[in-house]
């Protein structure tokens, strides 16, 4: 019985258990090989697809590597000025409460120039979803130090390693906004292994469900790699991320149903 299983009769449409969602466009992603942005984009679009809300979901792309997110996400999208996406999401959600609104931002966008917008959207408890990809560097502009760059971590603007005395400490923005009463669900995930991808997808799905139930702000941080910025291969970058980023940015839920998780 087993012998006559051939490649041909496995590869039939009805046997497909996984394929690219058509909520991702056919455009080749502009991201570097192995970059977590691509995975995160795909997870969001799979959630939107599975919830059947493509015609009600609006996304906001930041300034940074994912400035071109709207080339890859097959939904109506707006491109934000650097750092301003949470303010834009606020307006969109208030003007159109029944739409699903999410902002997609990097660490420079959300935790440097956009700090005030991030904190105040969270503090107002806007019923939106913020997806925050933290790779500890400004990727698009060529690998400069970011608010989340680790102590001693090299970048094009901290060539001898981040010196806390002159360059300040890495900013744990996610723990910060978790303290604000407006935030309902705050979690930190990753997308470098299948298990983590599944957890991130569950978290993003929960964020969108929270939005449906008007629970308030859901904030999903995705700790990710930057092979070109960190000057490593993707696999090495993921390994370095686990050994260096995770201790400082521990994965897991930080706040669930508006309660801080101990």
């Amino acid at each position: 019985m087993e012998e006559n299983i051939t490649k041909e009769n496995i590869r039939k449409k009805e046997n497909i258990v996984y394929k690219k969602t058509n909520l991702m466009t056919d455009k080749v992603l502009s991201y570097c090989p192995g970059c977590g942005h691509g995975t995160t984009h795909r997870i969001i679009m799979e959630v939107v697809d599975e919830m059947g809300i493509q015609s009600e979901t609006l996304g906001i792309a930041p300034v940074g590597c994912s400035v071109l997110a709207y080339e890859f996400m097959n939904i109506d999208m707006q491109e934000a000025a650097h750092g301003r996406a949470p303010a834009m999401a606020t307006a969109m959600k208030r003007l159109m409460p029944e739409k699903y609104i999410f902002s997609y931002q990097g660490d420079g966008d959300l935790a440097a120039i956009g700090t005030a917008e991030t904190i105040h959207a969270c503090n107002r408890g806007e019923n939106i979803t913020i997806i925050f990809v933290n790779n500890g560097i400004y990727g698009m502009t060529g690998g400069q130090m970011a608010p989340t760059t680790l102590p001693g971590m090299k970048s094009s603007t901290s060539p001898y390693g981040r010196d806390i005395v002159t360059m300040g400490n890495p900013l744990k923005i996610t723990e910060l906004i978790a303290q604000l009463p407006g935030t309902y669900f705050v979690t930190r995930q990753a997308v470098h292994t299948p298990a983590n991808v599944r957890k991130t997808k569950k978290a993003i799905r929960k964020a969108f469900e929270n939005q449906k139930l008007k629970k308030g702000l859901s904030f999903v941080e995705v700790v990710s790699n930057c092979s070109s910025g960190w000057k490593m291969t993707p696999v090495q970058a993921n390994k370095w991320m686990v050994e260096n980023m995770f201790p400082f940015y521990p994965l897991g839920d930080i706040k669930v149903d508006r309660e801080l998780v101990k």
């Binding site: 906001i60 707006q78 934000a80 000025a81 301003r84 303010a87 834009m88 999401a89 606020t90 307006a91 969109m92 005030a116 917008e117 105040h120």
Partner: peptide
């Protein structure tokens, strides 16, 4: 923030 809310 205001002007970007207007943008959106």
């Amino acid at each position: 923030a205001s002007i970007n809310m207007v943008y959106a």
